[in-house]
Design a protein around this nucleic acid. Structure first.
Length: 580
RNA sequence: GCACCCGUAGCUCAGCUGGAUAGAGUGUCGCCCUCCGAAGGCGAAGGUCGCAGGUUCGAAUCCUGCCGGGUGCGCCA
């Protein structure tokens, strides 16, 4: 399925034969041996660094190894040429049949082409969004939601057993603030003047919550002390906010497998159990932290607190798990929450955080390392901010009254597909510009359009061919004689298609879904370039007089479309068959 | 002060966890439609990969130290 992996096996086998023949010493570590597509096509179809990597351990000059390896590989019928180049690269030219065979692989597998088992069914938990349930989701959350969801898709495609999870921060002080804010809107619903004091959430989005509270409780909560209504209003408002968040996520096409509640950790012994686990490992102690150097807070005074010895697991300073009044810090439930993930048997954890949470990376990793005995790796992806523009000008959002650009605003203006794709056109840790005008532009400036257009062109070809009376159903294209695809331009396009399975593996291994978006752009670009060559060379057009010739070429076009669709599916973007 | 992220073409960014002459887009300039969708394509020009060392066959990539920008730093989550 993955030509590059196949060829690497061929190289490894050849090295094995060389070892048997005494050309190489036994017991060499072949991990560093790579088979990659060379950057420059003039260097052949694939290149291996085997000779250079093995030169030192084998105690032989690289060129000598490369020459021997070349001879060994030439026995493989798939390999037509093996040239030693540069410091000891071995450039391989493959039989065209190998590339032509890719068409059959793609068409037979459909959008499963590129599916991999490198994940080996390992259980991975992807925690993302986890926005506080105190208001609607804004643009910043949108990017995290898209990255997390696409990453989950990608890992599933590459053979992981994926759980998408949302951690609801419903246990801290901020949900009390929500409750008080909602209570004022409840009073407002009764015709009273709301008192939105400093520190409360002023947003209009709480007005419906006030109305709903009125509908449920009538006037019974009015003129009563907080102790009489806080818990109920808090639960009510939190539930409504989560409802809104779920519907926002649905709007984006994101569906979580699990919602975990912070509040549910309190009073159930979960937090205590996690801390006890750490204590048993000797990682909990009572102590006094040093003030941060160079920036001592005004009101700093030394206090004894319960501390987690996170420095034993790579952190810079130990972290408090209890406040000086004996209550838990926010970090304690976070520890407990991650402990539940470890206990649920995940082999691998991924957290998607906003970049402003960069300071918590080391301590979370330390906690997971301590709680899993170093068995469960935690990868944390920080999502940089999204800068909004409109027509090239910064999109001003009003600071007053808590209004901001919400996820809903963005999706309603740009559409879920466009939003998702654009959010993946940057690596997670660099800032992203999102221009409301540009992302809707139907031109090559817009990568979403550009990729969709390539797919639309393929479908246009299929329609044209059908009009000309050429059968283009899947079975016919699969059975076509793909050996006819011998023009260098056709082979070049095929090579790009053949890269897809490898790209999937690289992207998945690095937890980097943006690579898929970049690859699709490149594939689309290659396709558009190929398309235009048909202007000059009629023999390169997909639709030909001869039906059999057409079918082979259309099979190529179709395989491009299949890969685009497979890639878009990972990004969570719907492919379009026609632009309008 | 410390930690983390970023620094690559005028601008916006990729760069396959060390590979060959560092790539796209955009902008600038010049081209290509009696031709499957020009909603596209081709070409030119544009670089001390922030700086300085180090590791090795080989560094944009790994290590160290600086410079610049961002984020964060006990009783907020």
């Amino acid at each position: 399925m993955n030509l590059f992996a196949d060829l690497r096996s061929a190289v490894v086998d050849a090295l094995g034969r060389m070892t048997v023949e005494g050309l190489l010493p036994p017991g060499l570590d072949l991990a560093a041996v790579a088979v990659e597509p060379p950057r420059d096509a003039a260097h052949g179809d694939m290149a291996t660094n085997a000779a250079m990597v093995l030169a030192k351990p084998a105690g032989k000059p690289p060129r000598e190894i490369a020459d021997a390896l070349a001879r060994a590989l030439m026995e493989d019928p798939r390999i037509e040429g093996a040239d030693v180049a540069g410091p000891g690269f071995l450039n391989l030219r493959l039989a065209p049949a190998l590339w032509q065979g890719v068409v059959r692989q793609v068409l037979a597998a459909g959008t499963d082409y590129g599916r991999s088992d490198i994940g080996a069914g390992a259980k991975v938990n992807v925690e993302f969004v986890s926005a506080n349930p105190t208001g609607p989701m804004h643009v910043g959350h949108t990017r995290g939601a898209v990255v997390g969801d696409a990453l989950a898709n990608l890992l599933a495609f590459a053979g992981w057993n994926v759980t998408r999870e949302y951690y609801i921060n419903d246990g801290g002080a901020q949900v009390d603030v929500l409750a008080r804010s909602a209570y004022e809107r409840y009073r407002e619903a009764h015709g009273l003047e709301p008192e939105i004091r400093e520190g409360l959430y002023p947003g209009d989005y709480l007005i419906p919550v006030g109305e709903a509270l009125k509908a449920k409780y009538g006037p019974t909560l009015l003129d009563k002390g907080e102790q009489h209504w806080l818990a109920e209003v808090r639960d009510f408002a939190t539930a409504m906010m989560m409802q809104e968040i779920r519907s926002d996520l649905a709007l984006l096409g994101v569906e979580m497998d699990v919602y975990s509640s912070e509040k549910a950790l309190y009073g159930t012994g979960e937090i205590e159990a996690a801390i006890e686990e750490l204590r048993a490992a000797g990682l909990i102690y009572e102590g006094v932290l040093e003030p941060p150097k160079g920036k001592t807070p005004e009101d700093w005074e030394p206090r004894e607190q319960t501390l987690f010895r996170s420095t034993a697991h790579g952190d810079d300073v130990d972290r408090p798990v209890k406040k000086s009044d004996g209550s838990w810090t926010y970090f304690a439930p976070d520890i407990a929450y991650h402990y539940t993930k470890v206990k649920r048997g995940f082999d691998q954890l991924i957290d998607i955080f906003g970049a402003d949470h960069g300071g918590y990376v080391k301590r979370m990793k330390a906690a997971v390392s301590a709680l899993s005995g170093g068995r469960v790796p935690l990868d944390i992806k920080l999502i940089q901010l999204v800068k909004l523009f409109k027509g090239g000008e910064p999109f001003k959002m009003s600071k007053r009254a808590g209004t901001f650009v919400t996820l809903r605003d963005v999706v309603e203006q740009a559409g879920a597909d466009v939003t998702r794709f654009i959010m993946l056109t940057r690596k997670n840790d660099v800032a992203l510009d999102f221009d409301f005008d540009k992302v809707l532009e139907q031109s090559k400036d817009n990568p979403v359009f550009y990729v969709q257009y390539a797919n639309a062109r393929v479908n246009s070809v299929l329609r044209k061919a059908a009009e000309a009376g050429i059968a283009v159903d899947d079975a016919v294209l699969l059975a076509a004689d793909h050996r006819a695809l011998s023009h260098p331009a056709e082979l070049a396009l095929l090579k790009k298609v053949a890269e897809w399975p490898r790209l999937v593996e690289i992207a998945a291994r690095n937890n980097e879904p943006h690579r898929v978006a970049f690859y699709l752009y490149e594939l689309a670009s290659d396709f558009h370039g190929f398309w235009n060559r048909g202007n000059d060379e009629a023999s390169l057009r997909f639709v030909q007089e001869d039906a059999a010739a057409s079918q082979a070429k259309i099979a190529l076009a179709k395989s491009v479309s299949v890969v685009i669709c497979a890639g878009l599916a990972i990004l969570g973007v719907t492919p379009v068959e026609e632009m309008r």
